[in-house]
């Protein structure tokens, strides 16, 4: 995509040919990203709806099911994500101030946090495969070594764990996509790719990453902290 004019000033952001001004371009990208985030909100929203419906329907039982989840690990992950979100916000700020080095460090920090998140997720998930708590055909409830009372109906437990794995799984998928996006962003920034001439790409990846954080902010109390 060619930029306006013959001489490209490497310090000036590129205005793509379909835009008139840089402000228009930046605002358009933000509007596009936000309307995409509307989509994401609705996608998770539908799952939250299913969750709240079943939670309401089986409210007596969901407490017993959630006792098998570890609120400590979940809490650690929440902090971790909040911190990564904070780093991401700093990265965007650094980009806006054209502090390239700080930007890279903050982005790297975000990726590290994302990997920590996935590792903790794996620590949580893998035992559940062994304990037949993954809602496939081999699902079994009550668990062999229950942490909680192990009560409640096996069928409803399967619904709970279906929701748990679907929602955290979809969220995990978003984390993975986020890692890929941040990596690409870092590489392209490092290579001084033509597409990365202003703060907008970082801002958009940042918006996405904050959204991932946002989802987890709700997932954590809903799955790990069900009050009696």
């Amino acid at each position: 995509m060619a930029a306006h004019g013959a001489a490209i000033d490497p310090n000036e952001p590129v205005v793509y040919e379909q835009y008139e001004t840089i402000e228009q371009q930046q605002e358009t990208y933000l509007v596009g990203m936000w309307s995409f985030l509307v989509t994401e909100v609705m996608m998770f929203g539908a799952l939250f709806l299913v969750y709240s419906l079943y939670r309401w329907k089986f409210r007596g039982e969901f407490f017993m099911f959630h006792e098998e989840l570890s609120w400590q690990w979940g809490g650690l992950n929440t902090m971790n994500l909040l911190f990564s979100s904070f780093l991401m916000a700093k990265a965007v700020q650094a980009t806006q101030l054209k502090r390239a080095k700080a930007q890279m460090w903050y982005l790297a920090g975000t990726i590290v946090c994302a990997f920590i998140f996935l590792i903790i997720k794996a620590i949580e998930w893998i035992p559940k495969f062994e304990h037949h708590l993954v809602p496939t055909a081999s699902f079994h409830w009550p668990p062999h070594e229950p942490h909680g009372s192990g009560g409640g109906s096996p069928e409803h437990a399967k619904i709970f764990y279906s929701l748990y794995f679907t929602m955290t799984g979809l969220h995990g998928l978003h984390v993975v996509i986020g890692i890929i996006a941040i990596t690409i962003l870092m590489v392209m920034t490092k290579l001084k790719a033509k597409a990365i001439t202003d703060y907008i790409p970082t801002e958009m990846v940042g918006l996405y990453w904050h959204f991932v954080d946002l989802v987890w902010i709700f997932l954590y109390p809903l799955f790990y902290l069900i009050p009696r």
């Binding site: 299913v50 496939t136 055909a137 069928e155 399967k158 619904i159 929701l163 794995f165």
Partner: peptide
């Protein structure tokens, strides 16, 4: 594919 159950009436789903 994985036999999750969200809408399955056998599990009390709707």
């Amino acid at each position: 594919t994985l036999k999750f159950g969200i809408f399955s009436p056998e599990l009390g789903g709707d």
